[in-house]
């Protein structure tokens, strides 16, 4: 197969950036999207040119490193698929494919298709954990958790932190990412004691990072390679309201 690639090249956050066209020749339909890019990059390197920079690592859809808009879709047009798991058999021979980085203000471009997603780490640092020191845990089977609750928490916990949700949202909102972690922890008995404080602090941090608000477009859920549900957002809003009310009435949000 052959493709024409229109790729966003940008030397760094200060550079204005531009699209550059490349030809991808002789690509097997069994190769993955990133393997197709590897091939283009290797031919660039062989000519002494700098390859297209993009984040990637595990190449099995779980580390969350890969992150690019493919023809306007985060991770490409296949549902529930990261860019690294997308295969060329889903494209038409001769097709022109446009590649851009995530475009959302809190994710500045590092170079070409690579962005800085440390804002997500800072949101987790603000409360996306259970405060339990090593060694102080009680026996694991002491607290039974109904299977449906555990399964539901697991579904939220499968978020890979890739940022496709924020990149696809017209408002640049990170609500799906934040709510997935909030719901994962708040719904389990282990995370319950800190639930309201966690919610308030993670939401505050998200706002400080410059992510937008949720206005129920639903693009995030469609773009999410792990198909995380928007229901997480409404559950988080409920906890956020509880936390804000408690803060207003008692001057604290209940957990602190």
């Amino acid at each position: 197969m052959r493709f024409t690639l229109k790729v966003w090249r940008q030397n760094g956050p200060g550079d204005s950036g531009r699209f550059v066209e490349y030809a991808a020749e002789d690509i097997s339909s069994d190769s993955s999207f990133l393997e197709m890019l590897d091939r283009v990059n290797e031919s660039l390197e062989a000519e002494g040119e700098e390859p297209i920079v993009f984040d990637h690592d595990c190449r099995e859809g779980i580390c969350g490193a890969c992150s690019m808009m493919i023809d306007g879709y985060a991770h490409g047009p296949e549902r529930g698929t990261t860019a690294c798991q997308l295969h060329m058999r889903h494209f038409k021979d001769g097709q022109t494919i446009t590649l851009e980085p995530w475009r959302v203000r809190p994710f500045p471009v590092v170079r070409d298709l690579m962005v800085d997603r440390s804002a997500f780490d800072r949101i987790i640092e603000s409360g996306g954990y259970v405060s339990v020191n090593t060694g102080s845990a009680p026996e694991a089977n002491l607290i039974p958790i109904p299977k449906d609750i555990a399964d539901d928490a697991f579904d939220s916990a499968t978020c890979i932190g890739c940022g496709a949700c924020a990149a696809s949202c017209p408002n640049g909102s990170a609500m799906l990412f934040v709510s997935a972690k909030v719901h994962h922890l708040n719904s389990l008995p282990q995370g319950e004691p800190e639930s309201l404080k966690r919610t308030a602090e993670m939401v505050m941090r998200m706002d400080e990072e410059g992510f937008g608000n949720c206005t129920n477009h639903g693009e995030c859920e469609v773009a999410c390679p792990k198909e995380i549900s928007m229901r997480n957002i409404s559950r988080m809003n409920r906890d956020f309201v509880r936390s804000s009310l408690l803060a207003r009435v008692f001057g604290s949000n209940g957990n602190s």
Partner: peptide, 22 residues
């Protein structure tokens, strides 16, 4: 055995039986 205790306390959603146990 301590690892499992620690991870469960952190909120790691291990698979569970219908009775709620691991």
């Amino acid at each position: 055995v301590n690892i499992i205790d620690q991870c469960v306390a952190q909120g790691v959603p291990f698979a569970r039986e219908y009775g709620g146990l691991l």
